[in-house]
Amino acid sequence: MTSSAPAIGRPLARADVRARAGLADPAYRALLTLFAVGVFAVLALIVWECARGAAPSLAAFGWRFLVSADWDPVAEKFGALPYLYGTLVTSAMAMLLAVPPCIGAAVFLAELAPRGFGAVASFLVELLASITSIVFGVWGLFVLAPWLRVVIEPWLIAHLGFLPLFRGFPFGLGFLNAGIVLAIMIAPTIVSISREILLATSRTLREASLALGATRAESLAVTLDAARPGILGAMILALGRALGETMAVTMVIGNTNRISASLLGSGATMASVIANEFTEATSKLHLAALIELALVLFAVTVVLNAAARLLVRWTTGGRRDVAGAA
């Protein structure tokens, strides 16, 4: 018998319990910690793989990659400007179209709707967030594009054609289509996070302002003011999603490497050109240029996400269910 075994009749000491557990407890904890470290490892691997793959392009073009509009796989010249432009234009349009109605919808769901209706509509919005991008792509290609070509774009050209934004021919596919599809896709994100934020911030403020004799609209201004950083966070998260969205955009943007001032023109985004050309890349340098695009996209979205999540957390006082719902 070893001396560490407790004598009969003596109460178990803490040390005895520890001794019995032996190495199992630390080992178990170490195993779980290993899984947690895995999350970092995955992030690091993404950066490493993108940086490694992009190295030839980084070496060949340097910073000119971002300002040159010359994308010519045959001559092995690669400049990302048309794709940066396309990404920026489509995302900006999506935000302009989506943000105003989405904030209205969030306010309606959080503050005005009868409880039962609000719950049902919020559930519906959550479900809409689960519709996958390829489904949006099919819809944009077969339904939205013909409609834009026949109805909307001729009207825009006839009535607003004096603006450079609406010059050109009605193709149906292009920046306008991509912007509309993106706006529909990011709407559920903005609505559901903004609604959560309004619910988390508003109660006392609303009651106080109503008690002072404010109308509903005036009290909304007060609560919106308090929720502003969080709603900004929701918008940035949605922007990050729009920037990185691939399949739906690839199907409706027309896929050319032009920089057109008109919204009716076709183009491509960083994500869509990767999806289009990656498996058919003609040379090592072509592949490296595409991977560099992924690297740029990664950097932009990580910075945006980091900022947005800090904003959401700050506004809601660290309520995980809100910060994480994003």
Binding site: L45, I46, E49, C50, I291, T301, R309, A326
Partner: peptide
Amino acid sequence: FAGAVRYAAELLAGVPSIVVGVAAYGL
């Protein structure tokens, strides 16, 4: 450390899927 893991997981959630595809291609 746990806070950092949570934040890393949230950042990972924001990485565009096409970028994950590029990384998995290399990997």
